[in-house]
Simulated scan of single mutants.
Amino acid sequence: MIAVFYVKKNTINKLKIIMSDSFIGEIIGGKYDFRAKIGAGGSSVVYLAKKLNSNERYAIKTLSTDEKNAIKLLEREIDTLKRLNHPHIVKFIDYGYEEDHRLVYLVLEYLDGQDIKSYFDGGIDLKTKLSLFLQIIDGISHAHGKDIIHRDIKPDNIKVVDIDEEPEAKVLDFGIAIITTTLLTNTIRSYHTPLFSAPEQINLEGVSRDSDVYSLGMTFLYLLSTQSERIRFQDKRHKNILYQSAKEVLNGYENSQDLIEKFKSATEKEREKRPRLDVLRKVVADFLEILSETKI
């Protein structure tokens, strides 16, 4: 998946993308021992870190910037992220600016799990898939209730972890789009992954809760589709490929058409035609109830 940055002409990009392992073995913020690089993409690199004098492990997302007032610029966004407190959103722990490296870092809970696409491909039943969809919707709803829009919902930004031997979904990267845009107000106008982004986001017409609904619809259709059709979708970039594939996959289930049609309506071009999150949640919950009653 590709995260896209739209950059204005005749401006200097203040962001330097860290694509090396240069911070491994260093102590950042005076207390976080960087142990390994565990992810990279777009504008950031994620490290596994251990807090000094403890056994606590964290995932630390880093962004390198020449903006000397980075922390002051981010105060409002950080305060907003601190208000996100939901079991299906990765927890925000701490943040800071390392002046020696000109590094903004965000400390998040470390999740020992796998991305949701890999988890689905491992072979799980439909009830579990739908239960995870409900968890994701609940997490996004919590954020929307606090006027926080994700801006980059996609399978790569959802992890599944085992808690008390039950799978739980965790939505990642709520802060990265907000923080990246804030740091680069004069250079970057949009941050998103084209395959899952709403038309208004791609066309730089502004984002809203409806934009997240679109990305959720695309993500759910993608996850319900077959591997071969996902690959074809990435090549052709036509959402109907996912729609048809998901429809065929669920063809043997009674009333599955309502579910797929609602997911499809979430990806309507016009924002006003997309369902609200509570409507999306209801159709998933209703279908899950039908499955439970029929003991499939």
Rank of each mutant, 00 (worst) to 15 (best):
M1G: 12
I2V: 12
V4D: 08
F5H: 10
V7R: 05
T11G: 09
N13A: 02
K14V: 00
K14A: 04
K14W: 04
L15T: 06
M19V: 10
D21P: 07
D21M: 00
S22P: 01
F23V: 00
E26P: 01
I27C: 03
I28D: 03
G29R: 04
D33H: 14
R35E: 15
K37T: 13
G41K: 02
G42L: 09
S43I: 15
K51H: 01
E56T: 06
R57L: 15
I60F: 12
I60P: 01
K61H: 09
T62K: 06
T62H: 10
N69L: 08
R76K: 14
E77H: 02
T80M: 11
H88A: 07
I89P: 00
K91I: 05
K91T: 11
I93H: 05
D94Q: 02
D94P: 01
E98V: 01
L103R: 03
L103W: 03
L108K: 01
G113A: 08
G113I: 07
K117F: 13
S118E: 15
S118H: 13
S118K: 15
G123Q: 04
I124W: 08
L130C: 08
I136A: 00
I137N: 06
I140H: 00
I140V: 14
I140E: 01
H144S: 04
G145W: 03
D147I: 10
I153P: 07
I153H: 07
K154F: 03
D156N: 12
N157Q: 06
V161W: 03
P167L: 10
P167R: 11
F174R: 04
A177P: 13
I178M: 14
I178L: 14
I179Y: 01
T187N: 13
T187M: 08
T193V: 03
P194V: 02
Q201R: 09
N203G: 01
N203R: 14
L204V: 06
L204K: 12
L204A: 12
E205Q: 13
G206N: 04
V207Q: 07
V207C: 03
R209T: 13
L216C: 04
L216W: 00
T219A: 04
L221D: 07
S225I: 09
S225N: 03
T226D: 13
T226P: 02
E229P: 00
Q234M: 15
K236V: 15
K236N: 14
R237W: 01
L242E: 03
L242D: 04
Q244N: 15
V249I: 11
V249Q: 11
V249E: 12
N251G: 08
N251S: 15
Y253C: 05
Y253H: 11
E254S: 12
N255T: 06
D258V: 07
F263M: 14
E270I: 12
R271Q: 06
K273E: 10
D278I: 11
V279L: 10
V279E: 15
R281G: 08
K282W: 07
K282D: 11
V283D: 03
D286T: 05
D286W: 03
E289R: 11
L291Q: 00
T294E: 15
I296F: 12
